[in-house]
Amino acid sequence: MNRPIIEISNLVKRYEMGNEEVYALRDVSLTIGSNEYVAIMGPSGSGKSTLMNMLGCLDTPTAGTYFFNGQDVREMNDDDLAEIRNREIGFVFQTFNLLPRATALQNVELPLVYSGVGKAERQDRAKQALEKVQLSDRMTHRPNELSGGQRQRVAIARAIVTAPSIILADEPTGNLDTKTGHDIMALFRSLWEGGNTVILVTHEEDVARHARRIIRLRDGRIESDKVNPDA
């Protein structure tokens, strides 16, 4: 395995709902190296999104350890986590999560705004990212003027514009038709082939087939973690 980016051990995430305790993750240990292509699968409610949020430093675990690029995530404060999310992680969501009133270009520029890149360079890099997802001709369109597949491309451009260590995608094709879903998966594949580390969540076997490694969750535990024989 290449240099590890993600090392988690005995990760637990517990939610308290009134008197009830819900364990979204029970005891998850996992190492993911650079330039891996991992699919996380499992039935609904098995903890996939919770795990992704944890990996993406959007959320913090109840117990267990998480080292990101060798740094202990538990020791980081809010701003450190924001910095990691900004520079090291590119997040792609099922619901795209674009700013509705900003143009495609502005949406892609946004992470660079928060890392303090000047306007000219910001636009340059955002344009390059949009080119990579073949959306150069839609830069000034707003999300509601774009199709679902195009929106997800914008979101992917936004995720890769900072050249992050990993790209996390939580059911990126969940809101897309099969054909568009395939296009998006092809895009992730090409990103991986270009040297990126890609981790994506899906419950479609069809989609997971692209990945090199498939991790299956059930009830907040890892059920299996295998190299994909089909890939």
């Binding site: 959007l58 924001a82 910095e83 900004n86 997040f91 946004l110 992470p111 928060y114």
Partner: peptide, 8 residues
């Protein structure tokens, strides 16, 4: 969204 992509 802003926080997810790195707003402090």
């Amino acid at each position: 969204i802003r926080k997810a992509i790195g707003a402090r």
